[in-house]
């Protein structure tokens, strides 16, 4: 599903984001990307959702080198890759319903599809009573749920989460992670970037440790301990 072949990313200011990453994520797999801040977790995700292109090697998604995608092909590619962020990126002037419906409008869904799919997704993630609420009237956990609903309403093949629990308390973080696990169980490939060791250790899924732009360790059995001596080379 996702393949990095000696992939690297050097930013225009010559700062190294990633270097020599070899990685293979299977279809329907769940993996954590862990490591210190600035280690390259977000760069790795950015390469997958084609926010930037690899300056070395290749990033192959859906059997295609995505650096060769044309600008006009990128929107259609992104409809297959859902993304959620630590700071939610919701539209404050729109209700929960409209925030989710927005993603459907973009792909040209009919009004009937929208009025069926949106309540269905909001119900599934536990926001059925918040249809008409605005993001500012919702808690952090609810906002993140809403963000997840928007990301999955188009039934993406891949879900990328960049620090999804960064702004949440431990209990809400667990709820969000359980929700993301359920999405994975429905068949979506999930990659979660986090620096929260407790979450990684609790869920025990494949763990990729990224440090100083390198894939430092790839643990199939999962687990992570914060600290400078963490992990062994992949």
């Amino acid at each position: 599903m996702i393949k990095f072949v000696n992939a690297g990313l050097t930013y225009p200011n010559m700062a190294v984001g990633l270097t020599g990453v070899d990685l293979h994520i299977e279809k329907q797999e769940f993996a954590f990307i862990v490591g210190p801040t600035g280690g390259g977790k977000s760069s790795l995700l950015k390469l997958i959702y084609r926010d930037t292109v690899a300056t070395e090697g290749k990033v192959i998604v859906f059997n295609k080198d995505i650096s060769s995608l044309r600008m006009r092909e990128i929107p259609y590619y992104r409809r297959r890759v859902g993304v959620i962020f630590q700071d939610f990126l919701l539209l404050p002037q729109k209700t929960a319903f409209d925030n989710v419906a927005y993603a459907l409008h973009i792909r040209g869904a009919t009004q009937r599809q929208i009025s069926t799919l949106v309540p269905e997704v909001l119900d599934w993630i536990g926001l059925s009573r918040k249809l008409k609420s605005y993001p500012t009237e919702m808690s952090g956990g609810e906002q993140q749920r809403l963000c997840i609903a928007r990301a999955i309403v188009n039934k993406p093949d891949i879900l990328l989460a960049d620090e999804p629990t960064g702004n949440l308390d431990p209990d809400t973080s667990l709820e969000i992670m359980e929700l993301i696990t359920r999405i994975n169980e429905r068949g979506t490939t999930v990659l979660v970037a986090t620096h929260d060791a407790s979450i990684v250790n609790r869920f025990r899924r494949r763990t990729l440790v990224v440090r100083n732009g390198e894939l430092y360790a790839d643990r199939r059995e999962g687990g992570y301990h914060e600290g400078p001596g963490e992990g062994t080379h992949a």
């Binding site: 600008m71 006009r72 990126l89 973009i106 188009n154």
Partner: peptide, 16 residues
């Protein structure tokens, strides 16, 4: 700009 960023992330075309 945030709205545009969101539009780009959820797959909106340039014309949209």
């Amino acid at each position: 700009r945030t709205e545009i960023r969101i539009m780009q992330l959820v797959g909106a075309t340039w014309w949209f």
